[in-house]
Computed example of a mutant assay.
Amino acid sequence: MAGLCLYAGGALAAKLAGVAAFTLAWTHSIEKIPWEEDWRVTPAGLVLVEARVKGMGAGMEPPPEAVLAGGFWRWAPRVPPLPDVILRRAGVTADWRLCAGGQCRPMGDLAPGDADPVMMKPCDPG
């Protein structure tokens, strides 16, 4: 079974065993609009399944194929599996939120609050 590892400062900060899918959520720093991405953890890397944004503005325009459903513009980005995803943390905006297994947590619960960047990557759940 898959697992997701978070690294801060090059060191393992959290190992989320059994996480095969997760949602990464945040609030845009300028527009204050929610953005969410659904990811899968696979042997080939992290796969972006769907992106959602609640509104538009300041570089948040959804692509032409996006569909408005449930109050969000939704689309399936066409990107290959990624070996890792780097999250920058400005410290002046709300932190990233990671949702898995029906539970959402701020990144600060998983990695040191001042850690920038945080790297997410698939890992051996063992």
Rank of each mutant, 00 (worst) to 15 (best):
A2M: 09
G3S: 08
G3L: 07
G3V: 04
L4S: 09
Y7G: 04
Y7A: 07
Y7P: 11
A8N: 10
A8V: 12
G9V: 12
G10F: 12
A13Y: 06
K15V: 03
A17I: 05
A17E: 14
G18F: 12
V19K: 05
F22V: 02
T23F: 01
T27N: 08
H28R: 10
H28F: 08
I30P: 03
E31T: 14
E31F: 03
P34F: 07
E36T: 11
E37A: 14
D38N: 13
D38A: 13
R40H: 13
V41L: 10
V41R: 01
T42C: 08
G45S: 11
V47S: 05
V47E: 15
V47A: 09
L48F: 06
L48T: 06
V49A: 11
V49Q: 13
V49W: 05
E50K: 04
R52C: 06
A58V: 13
A58G: 04
G59W: 09
E61Y: 00
E61H: 01
P62A: 02
P64S: 05
L68I: 00
A69E: 15
F72I: 05
W73A: 14
A76I: 00
R78C: 00
P81K: 05
L82W: 04
P83M: 09
I86Q: 14
L87D: 07
R89P: 00
R89W: 03
R89V: 13
G91N: 05
T93L: 03
D95W: 06
W96E: 12
L98F: 01
C99H: 03
A100V: 01
A100H: 13
Q103N: 01
R105L: 15
P106N: 05
P106K: 04
M107W: 06
M107E: 11
D109C: 02
L110K: 09
A111G: 05
P112D: 08
G113F: 09
A115Y: 08
M119N: 00
M120G: 06
D124A: 15
G126R: 13
